[in-house]
């Protein structure tokens, strides 16, 4: 069962194609990451499915139903920036959101406690720091305990502890059976939090699927292992590694070497081999093929701004 299904959505701003024929579906109870560089169309996409932007063509539906404001009432959304009345305090701002949703008025205290803003509930929004504003926006999405949450850059402006808290909150919400759609340009975030990912660049959907599938597509490349390795004598290390069975390439990276080898090669074997050849390693790190590597493979290495 899909929560959201998007069909050939396009959005043009005069000659610029902000979104070009984007289609995908978000399965129920997943954490679905929409990953792309700045300006790739993530917020435009979310804006359209929230009816604040009009699509040039294409369609979308929520839970198989055409989108209406009644559907939106049951979705908690944080889009782009925390949008609140500056002259009002947190409580009153949340009261407005709850009244619009027609539910969640009784949740105000609870959600303020979840994001640690309860003590500051009477302070005006304009006195909040960026991180507090962001947390208030997240609190607002939780009103009425919605089954679907949409977060656009949810950790924007938060300090490291705040980032960890919000990521944990997202995972926890997902464990409660909620579906979370999350746009981010931070690879690490998507990798740590999401179960599914769609990669979007210049308005074009590059790939989407489970994080597992996108990260490890079937094929030769997937079966390679990258290892970062260093020793005092780099030249000698390079010579012996080139002779090691299973090692396909050795490249220099500053004071260390990066080897690409067969999946069968383990870190233990490399360590043992080097030691037997008389080289003592001072660094040995297996690099999982990360989303970052995969992302760069998919999108190319140039920034798209």
């Amino acid at each position: 069962m899909s929560v959201l299904s998007i069909d050939k959505l396009s959005k043009n701003y005069r000659s610029i194609k902000a979104l070009d024929n984007v289609s995908f579906t978000v399965p129920s109870q997943t954490v679905f990451g929409i990953l792309g560089p700045n300006g790739s169309g993530k917020t435009t996409l979310l804006g359209i499915i929230m009816d604040i932007l009009k699509a040039s063509s294409g369609s979308y539906n929520w839970n198989g139903q055409q989108s209406t404001n009644e559907v939106r009432k049951k979705i908690g959304t944080l889009l782009e920036t925390p949008n609140f009345y500056h002259y009002m305090n947190a409580e009153d701002n949340l009261l407005i959101a709850a009244r619009i949703k027609g539910r969640g008025e009784g949740d105000i205290e609870k959600v303020l406690r979840i994001v640690n803003l309860y003590e500051r509930r009477k302070s005006k929004f304009s006195t909040y720091s960026l991180g507090m504003k962001q947390r208030l926006a997240i609190a607002s999405t939780l009103l009425g305990d919605p089954d679907i949450l949409v977060f656009d850059e949810p950790t924007n402006g938060l300090d490291p502890a705040g980032i960890a808290e919000i990521r944990e909150l997202i995972k926890q919400l997902n464990r409660q059976g909620k579906t979370i759609i999350m746009a981010s340009h931070i690879l690490d975030e998507v990798e740590k939090v999401c179960t599914h990912v769609a990669i979007i660049q210049k308005g074009v959907m590059k790939t989407y699927g489970s994080v597992q599938d996108v990260l490890h597509p079937s094929g030769v490349q997937a079966s390679k292992v990258q290892i970062e390795i260093a020793a005092a004598d780099t030249d000698k290390l390079r010579t012996i590694l080139q002779g090691m069975p299973g090692v396909e390439s050795v490249t220099a990276a500053e004071q260390e070497l990066l080897i690409l080898c067969d999946e069968s090669v383990s870190a233990e074997q490399v360590n043992k081999y080097c030691f037997e050849q008389g080289v003592i390693l001072n660094k040995l790190q297996v690099k999982r093929k990360s989303l970052e590597t995969r992302f760069l493979e998919i999108t190319g290495k140039q920034s798209d701004r």
Partner: peptide, 13 residues
């Protein structure tokens, strides 16, 4: 304040 957006996101038509 972009609250016109937020009001609609929250469920006003």
């Amino acid at each position: 304040y972009k609250t016109h957006r937020q009001n609609i996101i929250d469920g006003l038509s």
